[in-house]
Design a protein around this nucleic acid. Sequence first.
DNA 1: GCTGACAAGATTGTCAACAAAAAAGTTACA
DNA 2: TGTAACTTTTTTGTTGACAATCTTGTCAGC
Lengths: 236, 236
Amino acid sequence: MDTLGNAAEQVAREDELGEEEIVERIFEAIIDQRLPPGTKLSEAALCEAFNVGRMRIRQSLLLLASREVVDLLPNRGAFVASPTAEQAREVFEARLMIEPNVARLAAERATDDNLRTLEQHLKLEHVAHHGSKRRDAIRLSGQFHVLLAEIAANTVTLRMVKELVTRTSLIIGIFGSPGVSNCRDEDHDEIFAAFRTRDGDDAARLMTDHLRHIQEHLELNGPAEAASDLVAIFRK
Amino acid sequence: MDTLGNAAEQVAREDELGEEEIVERIFEAIIDQRLPPGTKLSEAALCEAFNVGRMRIRQSLLLLASREVVDLLPNRGAFVASPTAEQAREVFEARLMIEPNVARLAAERATDDNLRTLEQHLKLEHVAHHGSKRRDAIRLSGQFHVLLAEIAANTVTLRMVKELVTRTSLIIGIFGSPGVSNCRDEDHDEIFAAFRTRDGDDAARLMTDHLRHIQEHLELNGPAEAASDLVAIFRK
DNA sequence: GCTGACAAGATTGTCAACAAAAAAGTTACA
DNA sequence: TGTAACTTTTTTGTTGACAATCTTGTCAGC
């Protein structure tokens, strides 16, 4: 399963999507923040969007729910998850356990080809960041972490990182400061520098600092969950 | 609709298993090694076993497949996963990333109640171990790791540990030495000692050693996958 | 005018029948 | 006797229809 550079192959057959593909598409839409937390994912709408039967959609939603990316309420339907502050804490705790080690392995195992891919990616991040394309910046920022997991060559941790990055995107959507981009690309540059020297320990340490930095820029004590958002909004 | 006597819905029909429950039951059966790798999980048989419709079973199998605990072959059905040596390596690499940190947090956060639960559990492990109840020993040994994850109080890592422990049970079934129990309970005792003093670093270090120890007792260069098991068995 | 029950509409959950594919069994033939 | 092609049977995959539930809209009664 190569997820490295497969951006161009999903154009060919649009009429027969597997459920894994649908899950991946929804993952990306959530990372891009095109699907904000709380969005209703009705089966009929998704059937039309992907041109598949209801069964396929239903299975996809079940998979998304098992990754805690959507909430599945009985007889109510599927909604994009709205992580609580406690869940956000858990997600970052897990990321701090896993990703420094992933970065260490990736730094030690990176091929020259991987380094070129990373360099290319960082260029795109810079462009998005300085071009004030917030949506692109967020997506690329998350993709950087997934890229490291792919380079680390461990499908188990790759799947975990994908899930955690996606959930982080939801968390940033809820608890992030509105105007500020949360992933500084300077941090990513520093991590890449450690890759150049294949310094795994350095990469791990920088990743730890990076994740802590992201977490500190969240307002986890701020507004409550999305349900009371409406209440708060209209309380004037 | 009916406002008169709305208490009539209290009929005693609680025998409807949810798919999460079915998944949990199959997880446990795999940990107990009652379901060895390669076992065919036919939909009809599972329907009868759990007294549920085919749809429920189908969704459960999908969830199990998403956790890589069963292989889902198109038009062929579901089979208990037979991890390859490479997958085994990945699972242990992931466990070595996560579980030492889980042990650290658990040691630092354990309440006195948690300590009593652990102590009780270790007693059971000793009994099973010295009583030559291999199946119980394996199950309890895995449960110990899950217990630590529960004490760590992080639902994200708890789910990951559950999956990794289950997959490890499959790995031991394939690559483990037949007569030897793979989890020494002395290791668990030592980890528990670190819990008594709330020494997180010590718990993490001991967990790392423990996992390495388990991995070293596997024969990852030995027999190939289960498919060729039959060939090997009847070659005499 | 507001509150509550009631009805209509829409959405989800479930089931049974059917289609498709693979596995098992059978026959023909070398 | 062994193999290959064919038929039967079993199992999986999909579609559609129906039941159950929730949401929305309406209206009577106070």
